[in-house]
């Protein structure tokens, strides 16, 4: 048992639990997130993008740039693993 680590983790835990008190209840339809952008996406996705899966619509269109970033992350990781583990070869 590592006391220092435990204390650090407990401290973080206290901070996080403190925040929970002011969070909307589980499944609250009136939470700011659901009320604001969540509703906007649900209302607009079909006519804007024309895809039935709203997650897909956001992923590929509204926030498509995040997805590009995500692809770059995989690319980066792939090259990283190649650099770290490959022996010889041209890469």
């Amino acid at each position: 048992m590592n006391v220092k680590a435990l204390l650090a983790v407990l401290l973080i835990g206290v901070i996080l639990f403190w925040a929970v008190g002011d969070m909307p209840a589980f499944g609250d339809p009136q939470s700011p997130a659901t009320r604001y952008t969540g509703k906007l996406y649900v209302d607009l996705a079909l006519q804007d993008v024309g895809v039935e899966n709203i997650v897909t619509a956001i992923l590929a269109s509204y926030r498509g740039f995040d997805t590009l970033g995500e692809t770059v992350v995989i690319f980066t990781a792939g090259i990283s693993v190649a650099l770290l583990l490959r022996r010889g070869g041209r890469l």
């Binding site: 952008t37 969540g38 996705a45 619509a57 956001i58 995040d66």
Partner: peptide, 13 residues
């Protein structure tokens, strides 16, 4: 009623 789609997208990333 649909659940909020945005966090799902974020978490995929």
């Amino acid at each position: 009623i649909y659940v909020n789609p945005l966090p799902h997208v974020l978490i995929l990333t």
